[in-house]
Amino acid sequence: MQVIPVLDLLDGQAVRAMRGERARYRPIESPLCATSEPLAVARALLAATGTRTLYIADLGAILKRGDHARLLAELLNGLGEAPVEIWLDAGYTDFPSMRSLFDRIEVIRHGPQRPGRATLVPVFGTETLLNTEALHEAAGFAPVLSLDHRAGRLITDLADPFAIRPDTSWWPSRVIVMTLDHVGSYQGPDLDTFAAIRAQAGHRELIGAGGIRHAADLSAAAESGAAAWLVASAIHDRQLDLPSTAKL
């Protein structure tokens, strides 16, 4: 199972997530890095995990307080020559909102600075998504769907939330099972919600998110059938022996 590190952006800084209670998020303080500057934190996370995939949540965009397009472009250009895949959740409501942000980031990246080799993958979260057709329209970008949960319940503004669980035809090949109240909580992964989604997901690749405390949690997550798990706090706090546990 792959460990995918998480970088949360708010007000131009990398912040530490806490149970999805975003008013409590503060600039990251981490033994991995002496600063909360996003590029430095991103480099530290990739080095600590030995992976070339990074999940970024643009909380400014999700909270409708302004996205981090320029910062994201600078971050993508600054991650070096090795290919890196960035999974970006920026509160998209539909495909046009996603495409608009991606286009702006690309314009900035191709300015006076030579663009880096990082590539963007859109993550559509049910917390903000209003149109399930967005996943089909974004097929060329290999989109990821995040099924966002709190207290075991799906968070969604979709017009027909009751149809979202039985109808999985619109789900793409990669799906994140996100439990926001487990993020940064050190209370363990929400394997019950993960199992419920796995029962519906068919052959899709499932990625868990939230709650990982130590290597035993990673083992339990791997045994549950997860292809990967999104992790932040346990990496920053050096509770995982990575990169030796980056793949189980």
Rank of each mutant, 00 (worst) to 15 (best):
2 Q>N: 13
4 I>Q: 05
5 P>F: 12
9 L>N: 08
13 Q>G: 01
16 R>T: 10
19 R>I: 00
24 R>K: 12
27 P>G: 04
32 L>P: 04
35 T>A: 10
35 T>N: 02
39 L>N: 02
41 V>R: 11
47 A>Y: 07
51 T>H: 11
55 Y>L: 11
57 A>L: 11
58 D>T: 07
59 L>T: 12
62 I>F: 01
64 K>A: 14
68 H>P: 04
70 R>F: 04
77 N>G: 08
79 L>C: 04
80 G>L: 08
80 G>C: 06
83 P>Q: 01
87 W>I: 03
87 W>T: 00
90 A>L: 06
97 S>F: 00
101 L>Y: 00
102 F>Y: 14
104 R>H: 12
104 R>G: 12
111 G>C: 03
113 Q>G: 04
114 R>C: 03
118 A>W: 02
121 V>Q: 11
122 P>G: 02
123 V>D: 04
126 T>M: 09
126 T>A: 08
130 L>C: 15
137 E>F: 00
138 A>G: 04
141 F>K: 09
142 A>P: 00
143 P>Q: 13
151 A>I: 01
152 G>Y: 10
152 G>K: 09
153 R>N: 10
155 I>G: 00
155 I>N: 05
155 I>D: 00
158 L>I: 13
161 P>C: 05
166 P>F: 07
169 S>T: 15
170 W>P: 03
176 I>E: 03
177 V>Q: 07
188 G>S: 08
189 P>M: 11
189 P>S: 11
190 D>S: 01
196 A>R: 15
197 I>G: 03
199 A>W: 11
199 A>C: 09
200 Q>G: 02
200 Q>T: 07
200 Q>V: 01
204 R>I: 08
204 R>F: 07
205 E>L: 14
206 L>Y: 11
208 G>K: 13
208 G>P: 11
209 A>K: 02
209 A>S: 15
215 A>M: 09
217 D>E: 06
219 S>L: 15
222 A>W: 14
223 E>P: 03
226 A>T: 12
228 A>R: 14
231 V>K: 03
232 A>H: 05
233 S>P: 02
236 H>S: 03
237 D>S: 08
238 R>E: 10
247 K>D: 09
